[in-house]
Design a protein around this nucleic acid. Structure first.
Lengths: 66, 66
DNA sequence: CTTAAATGTAATATATAGTTTGCATATGCA
DNA sequence: TGCATATGCAAACTATATATTACATTTAAG
């Protein structure tokens, strides 16, 4: 479950807590998603993408470690 | 939870059951996702997209009824 | 060296995604 | 008419995403 949430959030200069609050979810949930330890719901993925002005593909599609 | 799974699957000329089996999920799950009554996991969305040779955005991003 | 903010992590609880089974209905074909 | 395939639907069950609470760790600022 590798994804680009962490790097995108940091580029936007907001904290996990700020992102979580705007989406209506817990800080822990954001943390676990960024760590790749969660398999988030589509709803959540869409909410995160919209809040970060990205699309699903930007954040969650074929992400490679590099 | 509107999406393009049903129309894409039908264009590919496969049944719900075939798609489900290839993905490793139940027919009912595919049916409910197509009906928009489920909030599927990211894992599942990715599996469906790959099986249908589409991306997440193709199937699940800002889908409009028309 | 403190203090506060940001993040990691862990236990328990709750909501819901996904399974299993089974039956109903529609449609195409012999 | 009768049979097989594809889909809809519903109840009860299991697995897991997410919440809640709380504490530990890091880092920057005073």
């Amino acid at each position: 479950m590798k994804n680009n949430v962490k790097i995108t959030r940091m580029k936007a200069s907001i904290t996990q807590e700020q992102l979580a609050k705007r989406i209506g979810v817990t800080r822990q949930t954001i943390g676990l998603i960024e760590k790749g330890e969660y398999n988030p719901s589509l709803h959540l993925c869409v909410a995160i993408a919209k809040e970060l002005n990205k699309t699903l593909d930007d954040l969650f599609w074929e992400v490679d470690d590099s």
